[in-house]
Design a binder for these strands. Sequence first.
DNA 1: CTCCGCCCTAGTG
DNA 2: CACTAGGGCGGA
Length: 292
Amino acid sequence: MEWAGIPAAELNIPLTLTSGQSFGWHELENGRWIGAVGETGVLLEPEEDGFRWATWPEGRWDVIQRYLALDVDIEGLYRTWTAADASFALLIERFRGLRVLRQSADTVLCAFVCSSCNNVPRIARMIRALARMTGRRIIAPWAADLFAEPSLTHVGRLAEDVLREAGFGYRARYLAQLGTRIAAQGTDSLSELAFLRWDEARTRLMALPGVGPKVADCVGLFGLGHDHVIPVDRHVRRYVVSRHRPDLAGKSLTTNVYTALASAFRGIMGPYAGWAQQYVFMAARTRRDSDS
DNA sequence: CTCCGCCCTAGTG
DNA sequence: CACTAGGGCGGA
């Protein structure tokens, strides 16, 4: 394995890989993490002052560097956030090194269409099942049971009843329709959305079956590299309402309220508000007592 | 424009 | 058994 001298304070690998953005990773008993980035197999071994890594095919540091968004100066983000909101220092202290991953739009779309009214363990099971059904096996010397991430073209070949049989529930129809819809547009994947302005890409995403504001924003942030985009889920909603928009307490999450909450949070946290959102989400998710 | 019931399933109290 | 888990959709 090769060495990368990026300390845990700038990249907390276990935290980032389990923070609910990506669902295909699993941890070995020796503390190593195995997953697929597209069709590349990846092995990570985190330590305090850096991490060891390997890929299959070998030597793909470019894949790792991009996936982990190592070009982003996270210390700079911390300074910006604490200057904007001093109380954010607590969240940074708790989740230091948490990063937003740069995934493919295809993968993110499949994952978050499956996320509705669902829990993380089950979403992870679904994504692994999808990869197994659609992807190609990655034969790495250090991985016994690894598959490439699902792409929409492959998902499009799966019939709805096959997906239902595999336990996807009502999301089976969305996935099956997504595949045929993308094929009908004559495009191989969603990557072309990366060349559009975000508001236009978002409109196109929301025209797809099973894709509303929340899922579209997940694709924007996790899959298209739009760092300012904030998926407003129940956790982020509660945080922004209580801290910044108490006037919106008790109002149901309509399009207008959704937009108001997102712009309030973005107005304070700035161009990397999507990254900040990930910290708020983690804090709410790992809190064990009841809410206010 | 807002509200509400429904969609599937597995895990929890 | 009742309830919930990181939504979206269609009808009222």
